[in-house]
């Protein structure tokens, strides 16, 4: 079981790297969906747990939202707004990957120094959750289009979800459902915002928003 969970965690990081290095918009969305699926099955293998109804429900919700619904919305947006398929990064793909390596190193260091609640959990969980969060933040910082920023935000949220798995048992499930719902609402709103930005500026480049300054 541990091997599988570690495999899934490593897959999450690799998917993050793939996101950093991917140049195609829809490719990014697909990678994001894959990461969502990985994370949705992770709770089963992480806690050696009887497959409680709650875990199943959470996994199903996660898979539905992050694996299917959100990517569908994003792909729909790409088609509808007729976004060019190129990602257009501010930081090139190779430097992005190098920064990703730095991020992973940094999060391993940080993960060792972070005081955690007692409990047996995989040693990889904390560093990888930190790394996923930072990669998500880095994606939002370094990519130009609003849609890629949504992707970055979702990656960031995946990191938070991973971190939440640490305290899975202590967290009431209503809270987790709430978080999922939040994410969904956020993506929904961001989708609308993207529509508006594109209608207003004939582009979804967020640097066009500097025109709003003052």
């Amino acid at each position: 079981m541990d091997q599988i969970s570690q495999l899934l965690l490593v897959a999450t990081v690799f998917l993050g790297f793939a996101l950093l290095g991917s140049s195609s918009m829809s490719g990014c969305v697909n990678l994001l969906a894959l990461q969502g699926y990985c994370l949705s099955v992770l709770p089963f293998f992480l806690h050696h747990e009887e497959h409680s109804a709650r875990a199943v429900l959470l996994a199903a919700g996660m898979a539905f939202l992050k694996g299917w619904l959100v990517p569908r919305i994003l792909l729909h947006a790409i088609r509808e707004v007729r976004i060019a398929r190129e990602v257009e990064p501010l930081v090139g793909y190779v430097p992005s990957l190098l920064i990703g390596v730095v991020i992973v190193g940094l999060s391993v260091v940080l993960g060792q120094r972070l005081p955690l609640p007692p409990g047996n959990h995989s040693g990889l969980l904390v560093p990888i959750s930190l790394a996923t969060m930072m990669m998500g933040l880095f994606l939002t910082v370094s990519r130009l289009k609003a849609l890629t920023q949504v992707i970055g935000y979702l990656v960031f949220e995946n990191g938070i979800y991973l971190f939440g798995l640490l305290v899975f048992r202590e967290t009431p499930w209503l809270l987790e459902m709430g978080i999922l719902l939040d994410v969904f609402a956020a993506v929904f709103i961001l989708g609308i915002v993207i529509q508006h930005i594109s209608r207003q500026f004939d582009s979804i480049h967020t640097d066009k928003l500097t025109q709003l300054k003052e």
Partner: peptide, 25 residues
């Protein structure tokens, strides 16, 4: 510093978070 670019604002947040983590841990 206040130029209206969303990315840089996020970068400030990012840098600040990493700084705080490194400083406090």
């Amino acid at each position: 510093m206040q130029h209206g670019r969303l990315q840089y604002y996020l970068l400030y947040v990012f840098a600040f978070l990493v700084f705080v983590l490194l400083w406090k841990l």
